[in-house]
Design a binder for these strands. Structure first.
Length: 954
DNA sequence: TCGTTCACG
DNA sequence: GACGTACGTGAACGAG
C-alpha cells in the first residue's frame, strides 16, 4: 500500500489580501508592487518544503477566484455588492499570484461562475472520498463547514477509510480541526452553515437576520439542532424582539443559508492526481525570483538547503556548478570523481543470501540502477534471463536466472530459482522509497511485468539525455541516446558490445547461453554505466532547464506507454490473409500488363530498371535524374506521365500501391501477431523523433493506411475483442490551432473559436472566394507555413511558378500578421541559443543552423520553424495520455484500455456499453491537456468515433 | 549499407 | 551559379 495521500488546497485569493496588509510595500526592480506576492511566495515555499514531513502535502494546488461574479449573484444580486475595490497597489499583484504559482510548477485552478470556496469544497470532498487527507490553507470561516471526516457511505469503491479535512492558517501557524471550530462557533462544522445563515456576513453582504449576531446564532442552532428548527422555534417563544426578528427574517435566513452553502460537486477542472508534488523544477522558480528581486529566496534556492526543489534524492550538493552555462556544442566533459569502469569486481549473485544482501543495501541506498537481460528485443515476449543491479561506480552485480538449459548435457550453472528471485526482488523493485534508474527502462518494465512485478518509481537515462540534448549531435547516429554512445560521450568509456558477447547473424547465441562469468561482465557493466550516467545526467537536467518537461511529461509517460505496448491491439488474421491474396492476384495481373506495355520483362520494383524502361526505351518526356545519376520514378513523376496518357505509368502506380500494401501491411502484420496474446504489440520510442513525438516500430502502427479506400481495408482488420468496440479520438487541426495561438494570429484564432472550417476561412482570406480549388490550395499553403515555406516548394506543390508562389506567401503573411514575426523570432532564438522550445519547455537543438552549407542550413531553418509547433502538439497529447487512465479510473472506467497513439489520435478498446460514459471523459482530458501549465487562446477540438474496427471508428 | 519509394501525422 | 526544395517518422526493396 502506498502511504497516505495528503492534499493541500491553498485558498490563494484570501491569502493575498491578508498578506497585503501584513507586509511592507515592497517593489520589484521594475517598480511593480510585490509585497503581497512576496508573502504568498514564502508561504508556498514553506508548504512545498513540508513535503517530507508527517503532516506535509503529497499533493498541492492553488485555488483562485476567477472573477467577482458567481452563481450566488443570481441568487442574490446584493451578494458581495458592497465590497470596496481592492487597494490600488494590490491590483497589479493579482496576476503575479498566478505567475508565482506557475513558478513553483503547481496547478493553479479557477473556474468561471464559481468561487474559490466552491472549488475547494469540491476538491476536498473528492479527495476524502478516495481516502486522502485534506488540508485547506485558509482562514475563511465559510470553509470551516468542511472540516471533519469523510462519512463511510460516501467513499469511492474500494476505499476502506475516508480522509479527513482540516484547515491551516499559515499566518498564525494554527491547525483548525473539529475542536477549534466548536470552540469558535459553539457548534460542530456541519452546523456552521446554519449559524452563518442566521448571523450573516457583512464582508460578503450575506444578509442573515438583522439583529442576530454570532452569539445568538450559535446558541439558537446549538439548542434547536439546525436552522429550520431554530426558525420554527420562534412560534413557541415568548413575545420578544428575538421572536419578531426570527419570524420576519425567516426568508432572509433561508436565502442566506443557500448563499453560504458551498457547492461541492463541480466537475474538477484538473485531476487530483495531477496535483502530485514530486520535486519542483528549480529553473522557473529561479527565473521568477530573479525577476522580482526576491534575492534572499534566490540565495536559499541556490544553496540547496531548505529549498523546496528536489530533482532527485541523490547528490544534493552538486550545486556549485549551477552558474556555469551549458556547453553549446554538446557535453563532453571530464567525468567527475568516479573511478574508471573495472569489470573485474562485479559480483555474480548465485545464492539467496547474497541476493538478500544486495536488496538490503539497495533499500538503504534509495537509488539502484537496474537492467534486465532477456531472450529477445521484443519486451512483450522476452523471457527473463537475468537482472543486474548497481549501487555505485563498480559496485554492481548480475543475478543470472535463466542461463543454460538448451544443451541437455552441459552442466547448468548454480542460480537462484527464478520464482524465488522474483519474489525476493519484487518488494525492492516496487518500493516507492527506492528509485530505479534504467536505460530505456520501459523495456525492463515490460519484461518484469510478465513476472508480476510493477517496476517503479523509475528514472530513465535515455530519456533524460533526450530531454536535454535532442538534436544536439549533428551526426546523431541512432539518435545519440543509446547506452553505448552515452557511455562513450559522458564517461569516456567503451562498453562491452552485445555482439562481442553473443555474436551476430547466424552465429548469434541467446544471452541465456552465455557463460555466467562472461554474462556478469556484460550485464553488471550495463547497470554500472547506467548508475554513472544517472548520477551525471540527472543533476544536469535542472541546469539545462529540462527538468520540467522530463518530470511532468516524459517520465510519467513511461509506464503509460509500457502499458499500451502490453495491451497491444487485436488484428483479424483471416481478413489480412484474404487481402494479401487479393493484392497478390492483382499485382500479378498488373505485372503481366506492364511487361506487355514495356515489351520486355523487368523488375518493376527497381526504380533504376523502371526509369531506364520509361525514359530510355519508351522515350517518355519528363525524365529527371537525381544526384545518383538515376531517373526519378516517384509518384509525382509517374502521375505526370499518366496525365500525358502513358498507360504504363498508371499501371506502375497501381502496382506500387498494392505491392506496398501487401509487403508492408497485410503480410507483415500477420507475422507480427504475438502467438501468446493473439494481438499486435508495437514498440514506441520516446526518443525517436527530435521534436518529442513518439515513434512506433516492430511493427510501425503509426502509418497504417487511411488516405485511400483500398488502403483503408487494412484498418478494417484492426478489431476489438467480442463485446467491445474501438474508440478513436483525434485532435482536429491541432498544429494549425497551435500556430494560431503561438503566432497570435487574430483571424485564425477567431476562426477556431467560431468553429469554422479553417482551410475554407484561409481560402476566403487569401483568394476572396471559397470553392473546392481555392480550399485545397489554402490547405496546401497552411501546411507549407507549418513546415517552413519556400517559394519553390510551394510552387512545386501548387503547380505554379515560384513568382506566383512568392506572391501567395506575401499575401499570407499580410493577411495573417504574426506568422512572419514568429518565424523571425524563432530563427533568431535558435541561432543565438542553439535550440528551439515548445510551450512546455521541450528543447530541440539545431547545430546545423549556422552551417555554411546553404541547403543544410536552410533545412535546419525549416525544421526549427516546425519544431515548436509539432513539439507542442506532442507535449499536449503526451500530457493527455498521462492523465487519461487516472481520469477514467476516477469515473469508474478503469477497465478501458488505451491501445495506440498516432501523433494526434488515441485509440481505446472498451465494452460497447461504456462508450457513452467514456467518450466525454476522454474528450475532456484531451481538450484540457495543456492546462494548467499553458492556457491556449484557441480551443482544442476533439473528434471522437467508435465502431467494430479502427476504420469504423473514424 | 545506401538510396528510393511510400505509408502515416 | 549550384544546391534542391515542405516538417517529422519507419519499412520494404533493389543494388552494390
Amino acid at each position: 500500500m502506498a502511504d497516505k495521500q495528503h492534499l493541500y488546497l491553498v485558498d490563494g485569493s484570501s491569502y493575498i489580501f491578508r498578506a497585503y496588509h501584513r507586509l511592507p510595500p515592497l517593489t520589484n526592480p521594475e517598480g511593480t508592487p510585490v509585497g503581497a506576492v512576496y508573502g504568498y511566495t514564502t508561504m508556498l515555499w514553506k508548504l512545498a518544503d513540508d513535503l517530507d514531513k508527517a503532516e506535509g502535502p503529497t499533493h498541492l494546488a492553488v485555488i483562485l477566484d476567477k472573477s467577482s461574479h458567481s452563481f450566488r449573484n443570481e441568487l442574490y444580486a446584493e451578494y458581495k455588492a458592497h465590497r470596496p475595490d481592492p487597494p490600488e497597489d494590490l491590483v497589479p499583484q493579482f496576476p503575479l499570484i498566478r505567475d508565482a504559482t506557475r513558478a513553483f510548477s503547481l496547478p493553479c485552478i479557477e473556474e468561471q461562475g464559481y468561487e474559490a470556496d466552491d472549488l475547494i469544497a469540491s476538491y476536498a470532498k473528492a479527495a476524502t472520498r478516495k481516502g486522502w487527507d485534506v488540508t485547506i490553507v485558509s482562514s475563511d470561516k465559510d470553509l470551516m463547514q468542511l472540516i471533519g471526516q469523510c462519512a463511510e457511505d460516501h467513499l469511492d469503491p474500494g476505499v476502506a477509510e475516508g480522509g479527513c479535512i482540516d484547515m491551516l492558517d499559515t499566518m498564525k501557524d494554527a491547525r483548525i480541526g473539529r475542536e477549534e471550530v466548536i470552540e469558535k462557533f459553539g457548534v460542530p462544522p456541519e452546523k456552521v452553515g446554519d449559524v452563518l445563515a442566521l448571523m450573516g456576513d457583512s464582508v460578503d453582504n450575506v444578509p442573515g437576520i438583522f439583529g442576530i449576531g454570532p452569539k445568538t446564532a450559535s446558541k439558537l442552532i446549538a439548542e434547536n439542532g439546525d436552522l429550520a428548527a431554530a426558525l420554527d422555534s420562534a412560534a413557541d417563544m415568548k413575545p420578544s424582539k428575538l421572536r419578531e426578528r426570527l419570524l420576519e427574517g425567516r426568508d432572509m435566513a433561508m436565502l442566506s443559508r443557500e448563499l453560504v452553502e458551498l457547492k461541492s460537486d463541480i466537475a474538477l477542472p484538473v485531476a487530483l492526481e495531477d496535483m502530485k508534488l514530486d520535486g519542483i523544477p528549480p529553473e522557473p522558480l529561479a527565473e521568477f525570483l530573479t525577476t522580482h528581486g526576491f534575492n534572499s529566496l534566490l540565495k536559499r534556492l541556490h544553496a540547496g538547503s531548505g529549498s523546496p526543489t528536489r530533482t532527485t534524492n541523490l547528490n544534493p550538493a552538486k550545486q556549485e556548478t549551477a552558474g556555469a552555462p551549458a556547453s553549446r556544442e554538446g557535453n563532453r566533459q571530464a567525468p567527475p570523481e568516479m573511478p574508471p569502469v573495472d569489470r573485474s569486481g562485479y559480483e555474480c549473485v548465485q545464492t539467496m543470501e547474497r541476493l538478500q544482501a544486495w536488496i538490503d543495501r539497495a533499500f538503504a541506498a534509495r537509488l539502484v540502477a537496474v537492467d534486465t537481460e532477456a531472450s529477445s528485443l521484443d519486451s512483450i515476449q522476452a523471457d527473463l534471463v537475468g537482472v543486474s543491479l548497481a549501487l555505485g561506480p563498480n559496485d554492481a552485480c548480475y543475478i543470472p536466472l535463466g542461463h543454460g538449459g538448451s544443451d541437455m548435457f552441459a552442466e547448468k550453472p548454480e542460480q537462484v530459482p527464478l520464482a524465488d528471485a522474483v519474489a525476493t526482488l519484487k518488494p525492492l523493485l516496487e518500493s516507492d522509497a527506492v528509485l530505479k534508474a534504467g536505460q530505456n527502462i520501459k523495456y525492463d518494465i515490460n519484461v518484469l511485468a510478465r513476472h508480476g512485478i510493477a517496476l517503479g518509481p523509475v528514472d530513465d537515462t535515455m530519456i533524460i539525455s533526450f530531454d536535454m540534448d535532442a538534436g544536439r549531435q549533428a551526426d546523431g547516429i541512432g539518435g545519440g541516446h543509446g547506452m553505448d554512445e552515452l557511455s562513450e560521450r559522458h564517461l569516456g568509456h567503451t562498453t562491452l558490445a552485445f555482439k562481442d558477447i553473443c555474436g551476430t547473424g547466424k552465429k548469434q547465441i541467446p544471452f541465456g547461453e552465455v557463460p555466467i562469468a562472461r554474462a556478469t561482465e556484460y550485464a553488471a557493466e550495463d547497470a554500472d554505466v547506467t548508475w554513472r550516467l544517472h548520477t551525471l545526467l540527472k543533476p544536469r537536467l535542472a541546469l539545462e532547464g529540462s527538468t520540467r518537461v522530463y518530470e511532468r511529461v516524459d517520465r510519467p509517460l513511461i509506464p503509460v506507454v509500457a502499458q499500451m505496448e502490453r495491451h497491444g491491439i487485436r488484428v483479424d488474421r483471416a481478413r489480412l490473409a484474404k487481402l494479401s491474396d487479393e493484392f497478390a492476384t492483382e499485382t500479378a495481373k498488373l505485372e503481366g500488363e506492364i511487361h506487355q506495355l514495356a515489351g520486355q520483362e523487368f523488375t518493376i520494383g527497381s526504380p533504376k530498371q523502371l526509369g531506364d524502361i520509361l525514359f530510355d526505351k519508351l522515350g517518355y518526356k519528363g525524365g529527371r535524374k537525381g544526384k545518383s545519376g538515376q531517373y526519378s520514378t516517384d509518384q509525382g513523376i509517374l502521375e505526370g506521365l499518366a496525365a500525358q496518357g502513358a498507360e504504363i505509368a498508371q499501371k506502375v502506380l497501381d502496382w506500387r500501391q498494392l505491392a506496398k500494401l501487401k509487403s508492408t501491411y497485410t503480410d507483415a502484420l500477420q507475422e507480427a501477431i504475438n502467438p501468446a496474446t493473439g494481438r499486435v504489440h508495437t514498440s514506441y520510442s520516446l526518443v525517436g523523433a527530435q521534436t518529442g513525438r513518439l515513434s512506433s516500430t516492430d511493427p510501425n502502427l503509426q502509418n497504417i493506411p487511411i488516405r485511400t479506400a483500398i488502403g483503408r481495408q487494412i484498418r478494417e482488420a484492426f478489431v476489438p475483442e467480442e463485446g467491445n468496440v474501438l474508440l478513436a479520438a483525434d485532435y482536429s487541426q491541432i498544429e494549425l490551432r497551435l500556430a494560431a495561438h503561438m503566432c497570435d494570429v487574430p483571424t485564425l484564432k477567431e476562426a477556431f473559436l467560431a468553429g469554422e472550417d479553417i482551410h475554407a476561412r484561409t481560402a476566403q482570406e487569401m483568394f476572396g472566394t471559397v470553392d473546392r480549388d481555392t480550399r485545397a490550395r489554402a490547405k496546401t499553403v497552411n501546411f507549407a507555413i507549418l513546415y517552413g515555406i519556400s517559394r519553390w516548394g510551394l510552387a512545386g506543390r501548387l503547380g505554379i511558378e515560384p513568382d506566383e508562389a512568392q506572391a501567395i506567401i506575401d499575401t499570407y503573411f499580410q493577411r495573417f500578421p504574426g506568422i512572419q514575426a514568429y518565424i523571425h523570432s524563432t530563427l533568431e532564438q535558435v541561432r543565438t541559443r542553439g535550440y528551439s522550445e515548445t510551450l512546455f519547455g521541450r528543447k530541440t537543438w539545431f547545430p546545423r543552423i549556422t552551417s555554411t552549407h546553404q541547403a543544410e542550413r536552410q533545412g535546419s531553418e525549416r525544421a526549427a520553424i516546425n519544431a515548436p509547433i509539432q513539439g507542442t502538439s506532442a507535449d499536449i497529447i503526451k500530457r493527455a495520455m498521462v492523465r487519461m487512465m487516472p481520469a477514467l479510473d476516477e469515473a469508474g472506467l478503469g477497465h478501458v484500455r488505451m491501445l495506440l497513439q498516432v501523433h494526434d489520435e488515441l485509440v481505446f478498446e472498451l465494452p460497447e456499453g461504456d462508450v457513452d460514459t467514456a467518450g466525454p471523459v476522454i474528450e475532456r482530458v484531451m481538450a484540457e491537456a495543456a492546462l494548467p501549465a499553458v492556457e491556449l487562446t484557441v480551443p482544442l477540438g476533439i473528434e471522437i468515433g467508435h465502431g467494430k474496427s479502427w476504420d469504423a471508428a473514424h
